[in-house]
Design a binder for these strands. Structure first.
Lengths: 211, 211, 211, 211
DNA sequence: CATGAATGAGACTTCATTCAT
DNA sequence: TATGAATGAAGTCTCATTCAT
């Protein structure tokens, strides 16, 4: 256990990290195999002992990122029966996840077009399942009268775009800690959805306004 | 006159359009000179009569897009002395512009990293000037007591991310027309900023809530 | 007459001059059609109204240079029955010619390999005829007992190499005027060939030494 | 041992040799990467495992040739305190070197213009240092009263041009062996410089003549 | 596992040349 | 004559990938 924590990252892991960094920095097509090898501390030939092909590597990174995100979302959603609270939990998790792993977000959001064949379909399917969770939650909140928006379709999209943006600018060394930021985003999301105050959050008499 | 409308676009223009489409679809590094030539209906050698290099072409596209966006923003801002109204006008213009020219947005937002040297600096400077206009407007609204947010920095970022997202999904053939969508975004923006009701917009007694 | 002297060089002539300069500076293969056009003040398409092809242009330049050189040599040789004097006259003419037109020399000496087909053969034949004149003169001087060298073949070659070198470094703005330089080369040539003193040139009793 | 003599040259060496041959035959700009690859027995892509770029390859060839020539000249010069003898040794070495490696000479003399940037400056500097050695030796001979020329500057230039010419025509299969040729050049050089007879070389009473 | 060497395919770009205007 | 536009061929170089060692 303790050994594992301090042991040098196994080579395969170093390759993944190098790929994640470079694909995020320069894009998939803008990253060469040799740059990848150099960043991973290997020769370009050795790289192929740890991966199938450049595209398979990208596919694996994207699939794993989305699978983890989806799993976290499902875990969070499972623990919150109330739609309003569930959405807050999703926002909180999403912002934390995107703030902690901005590289993954940039790759997942920006390199879908670089994928071809069945892997691309898989990745798109995962992304759709993740978004479906948000949609279902928002719809449940609307049905329950907790949210008040003029256009649910728009609110869904605007909300996710807004929350994902954090990956593009959040700086862990900046003035706001990530958990605080997540709470601020929760508030923004509630405002966006015209959320009814929930226990302990809003003073009584607070009037929700449709947006 | 009508003939002019259907006349074939001048070659140079066809090259720009082809580049815009392909750079948006597949990214700068994912687009080859031959694809560009084919889409423009030229041989790859002929392409070079209408552009300097692939990178110069990208740079020109990005610079022009940003210059137009900035000019529109300045025109809009100049016409609205009231910060709240000015922000609404900016949001409206931004959403319309992004909905009408989603390709430009994708390229401008996604390919800055493909640029090198002084052109990159120019493009970044233009983008910063555009954002500074938003920041100044939001700050003015806060100073005037028209907006109520807990974190201005966050609101600025979240707001722009949200509004830019429209370029990624708006479908002109969809159920919502672009002007309507723009108005909905204006409402979302007001909600996000905790905007005080302005004349004719909100019923009396509406209580602004900080977000 | 006077008009012709001050009239702008006809375009065809400007093309020749541009080609001569560039082929001398950068070599035939190192010179592009567009550079040629720019130097001549034309578009690259217009160039083809004044020349056949790039290679024909090179061939014409080389042929004309060698034809002029050969004609001058023949004129000079025809006027000097004495082999010793004839060789001096050849050296004098060669040095002056090479000092006055260094570009032609560089092209003629350096770009034979760029020529193909019958033009190349022509050029080589002209060069051989020119050298044959020198050879015949040297042989005549040896037969007449005017020159004393251990290896005629070597002397012939060394002499020409030495005399041609002037094209590579002579500076008309330098301290030595070309006619003076030519006389110095005549002296060098005489020394190289172990030439017997001729009237007015060497004091009586001067002993020729074989080299 | 003997096996080593006939073993195939290492690939990198084959590339250098191919480049030397082709650059000498057709010039740097007249030689294509594919020709280079074919002559070296490689694919054009493989070439780049053994060189940086075509120009770097040229630069390396030129630098090494000049460095070797300079080193040989310095070794030769160091062993001869007498200026007259030193010059003879330089001529002897120069002629042998140029006769043995005519390709290098052609490239070094003909392709300086193809070089750009700092490598060009380096190569020119090496060439200047080599020539400075000759100049110093000639000046020392003049100061010591061993040489008698009317124009030292001219003699220096004419001498080097003459000696370098050997690379352009010497045929190892011809009637004169290289060491003999070198001695003949030594004699020519002495004649050119009006060298005083030195021990064992000239009969007493030999009168030096200025040239 | 690791890598130097190799390579077919393709990258971007320029070549010399032609032709309609 | 002059030239902008066009192009097939070729330029130099890098691509992702394989394989013998």
């Amino acid at each position: 256990m303790r050994a594992a924590e301090t042991a040098p990252a196994p080579t395969a892991q170093r390759v993944r990290e190098a790929a994640l960094e470079l694909f995020a920095e320069r894009g998939y097509h803008g990253t060469g195999i040799r740059q990848l090898a150099e960043r991973a501390g290997l020769s370009s030939a050795s790289l192929y002992h740890h991966m199938g092909s450049k595209e398979e590597l990208l596919g694996a990174l994207m699939r794993e990122s989305l699978e983890r995100l989806l799993a976290e979302a499902q875990a969070v959603a499972a623990g919150e029966p109330d739609p309003g609270e569930r959405l807050c939990a999703l926002v909180r998790m999403h912002v934390r996840s995107h703030g902690e792993r901005p590289l993954e977000t940039r790759v997942v959001d920006g390199e879908v077009a670089a994928l071809t064949g069945p892997v691309r379909a898989e990745v798109v399917a995962l992304r759709d399942r993740y978004e479906a969770l948000w949609h279902a939650t928002i719809d449940a909140g609307l049905d329950a009268g907790q949210f008040h928006v003029t256009s649910p379709a728009l609110a869904r999209r605007a909300l996710l775009e807004m929350c994902s943006g954090v990956a593009r600018w959040f700086d862990p060394a900046g003035p706001t800690a990530l958990p605080d930021l997540a709470e601020q985003y929760v508030d923004l999301a509630r405002a966006l959805l015209g959320a009814t105050a929930t226990a302990g959050r809003r003073v009584d008499g607070d009037t929700p306004r449709p947006v």
